[in-house]
Design a protein around this nucleic acid. Structure first.
Lengths: 197, 197
DNA sequence: TTTTGATTACACAGACCTGTGTACTTAGGC
DNA sequence: GCCTAAGTACACAGGTCTGTGTAATCAAAA
């Protein structure tokens, strides 16, 4: 597994840098000059690849919209693993919330383009949960999927302001209760019963 | 119940207008000129009451930090009523997420003052839940309180991007399950059993 | 070698922002 | 009537931002 090679195209280099700066410091806080300077290119080159900052913002968000990879693990495990992954990301020092929620919060309700992609992203995550729950035979997979994304986004928002990765564990525990309540087998029920030999 | 009289002091008028504009359109999106123009005062007057925009932002957030009013209703009802109130606020067209989370998202991680008040607010909400749960005799009130704030913030974040007040109902249903799982009496268990009588 | 396309350096327009300086007006309290 | 405090009008400094215009450079393809 070689480390990823230096990005090939200019466009990709711009996007990588924009991603880093937009995400870590905020879209409004970063000017195109800053991005160009960070790469060491002229502002003119940047504008030769993206017609406007808005276009760059849209491309940044679209690039963040990565679909979940398929997995052959049992669905219940996949669902709970989501929260473990979340906890790892919270613990990383370069985590700064959900880029889509942040963009909507930053750019305001008037920016329809940003809102549209944010909605699409949130819905894709919800559907991912729903499909796993359907595989598990959960009756109202739709409703439970919504509840699970609430826990995900809630823990992200809480971690954003508190910097506390434990929020992911709390979300996982709540998710476990909700899953068990829906009839999904998720290991031993809380803490009752002694270790079964 | 007379409608609230026109605000008395200049400072209060400034704060009311700043609140409206900052909250609805974003802190970075609104300049002090805009606020002054909206009230019909000169920018100089505004700066006579607040030494800087940062001070105005801080005052805006502090004014948003209203503590929950005491209630004599049963604790379980109070907790669940939180989500009904949330749903009503989502349905209002002037709802635009949590001002504290938005401010942190907008102003970035470097703004310590904003982050500090945001943390204080989030913790005060969590402690409110914890106190209600303690009244109910819930064993691990701390952990459950954290899970409940995740549902609150999750539904706020989801509604911010999706404009869907149903997120509050989903949060309430999840909260009901979590409460029942902790031994709190919250009415009939889901949908089993026919109408009694 | 010549041509073509990408990139650079750099200036600049036009907008907006925060914050200040200054002189004028206005309204009450004494 | 006079004095003080608050507000007004307005210009402006100094900064940032997006986006463009232009001429020079460089490298690789033809």
């Amino acid at each position: 597994m070689a480390p990823p090679p230096a990005p090939q195209t200019m466009k990709e280099r711009i996007l990588q840098t924009a991603d880093k700066l937009f995400y870590l410091q905020g879209i409004r806080a970063i000017g195109v000059d800053t991005i160009a300077a960070e790469i060491g290119i002229s502002k003119r080159t940047l504008y030769n690849h993206f017609p406007s900052k808005d276009a760059l913002i849209a491309a940044y968000l679209e690039r963040r919209f990565v679909h979940a990879r398929p997995s052959d693990k049992p669905p219940a495990e996949q669902i709970l693993a989501t929260f473990d992954s979340l906890e790892r990301r919270f613990a990383a020092k370069d985590f700064r919330g959900c880029p889509f929620v942040n963009a909507v919060a930053e750019l305001g309700p008037s920016d329809r383009a940003v809102k549209k992609i944010a909605i699409a992203f949130k819905e894709s995550r919800r559907l991912w949960f729903r499909d796993r729950l359907t595989e598990l035979g959960v009756a109202d997979a739709d409703a439970l999927a919504t509840q699970l994304v609430l826990l995900v986004d809630g823990s992200i928002a809480q971690d954003l302001v508190r910097d506390d990765p434990a929020m992911a564990r709390a979300a996982k525990e709540a998710a476990t209760v909700l899953l068990r309540n829906a009839g999904v087998d998720v290991g031993e029920p809380v803490k009752r019963r002694r270790a079964p030999k």
